[in-house]
């Protein structure tokens, strides 16, 4: 009785959203909103982008109602583990370090890491030696931030980490950074738009081809199976290609 009262009390405080433990009819998906063209906010404060379109297509295939919420990147895995939402569709690269915390679906696209530099940059290639003594920016808590720190940083570069990719891009354009490392398509998209006057793509970083997957909690096996099936389905029936063509002129699957 006491426990029930306490629980009820907590609920009344407005913290609740009770949900059953089985496969849900409704799932909450998180994305970031500062990683164009994969996810970004429009002026009506709505999430847009490749990730969002894919998430909606997957939900339609699975026939579940989805709510997509924005979550800052630094806290996105802790928030998933804390059950603030059920899945992350935010261009998250599948890594061993993350796999210790969360479960990943199969990939929904692949990308190498690339380096963008100012147009007049003396940096010749993406090797560690070329970046020695330079300032390299990346978004924190990402595979590229680990690369910037552990590979370029150990080779004598100064790694600066930003809460969002947008801010790292802004600082590359401002001239505070000598180079920015990020997923190739993100840099390509930025160089097509606001980055086109200042900067250029230097090239891919060898051996960094990686896969983006949907992150879920380890215990949600059913959700993982459903999502994997849905990914296969949208690739097979052409929905995936339709979405991809909206954003890219090449195949990213």
């Amino acid at each position: 009785m006491y426990k029930t009262l306490l629980a009820a009390g907590i609920c009344i405080l407005g913290m609740t959203s009770l949900a059953s433990a089985q496969m849900k009819k409704e799932i909450v998906i998180a994305s970031e909103g500062a990683y164009p063209p994969f996810n970004f906010m429009d002026s009506n404060n709505k999430l847009q982008g490749f990730d969002i379109d894919i998430a909606n297509a997957l939900c339609e295939k699975m026939q579940v109602k989805c709510t997509i919420v924005a979550q800052d990147w630094d806290g996105i895995i802790p928030a998933l583990l804390a059950k603030k939402f059920d899945a992350i569709v935010a261009s998250m690269t599948i890594t061993d370090e993350r796999k210790q915390q969360v479960e990943f679906t199969d990939r929904y696209y692949r990308t190498p890491l690339s380096l963008a530099v100012p147009k007049d940059s003396p940096i010749k290639d993406t090797s560690v030696a070329s970046l020695k003594g330079k300032t390299v920016g990346a978004q924190s808590s990402t595979t590229q931030s680990i690369y910037a720190e552990d590979t370029y940083g150990k080779g004598g570069a100064d790694a600066k980490l930003y809460p969002t990719q947008d801010e790292a891009n802004a600082d590359l354009a401002n001239g505070r950074l000598d180079a920015a490392v990020a997923d190739k398509f993100v840099l390509v998209e930025w160089l097509k738009n606001s980055g086109k006057d200042c900067c250029k793509l230097l090239g891919d970083i060898e051996g960094t081809m990686s896969e983006a997957g949907i992150a879920i909690r380890k215990e949600d096996k059913e959700l993982k199976a459903a999502l994997n099936k849905a990914i296969k389905d949208i690739v097979a029936d052409g929905t995936y290609k339709k979405i991809q063509d909206k954003y890219f002129a090449f195949d990213i699957y």
């Binding site: 630094d74 802790p78 370090e97 915390q101 808590s141 809460p163």
Partner: peptide, 22 residues
Amino acid sequence: SLVTIYDLMGVTKLAFSRSYNF
């Protein structure tokens, strides 16, 4: 820490982003 400075908070966030240990 929000503008790339590794002060106490910045270091904390960096370490947390790699270990996820509260």
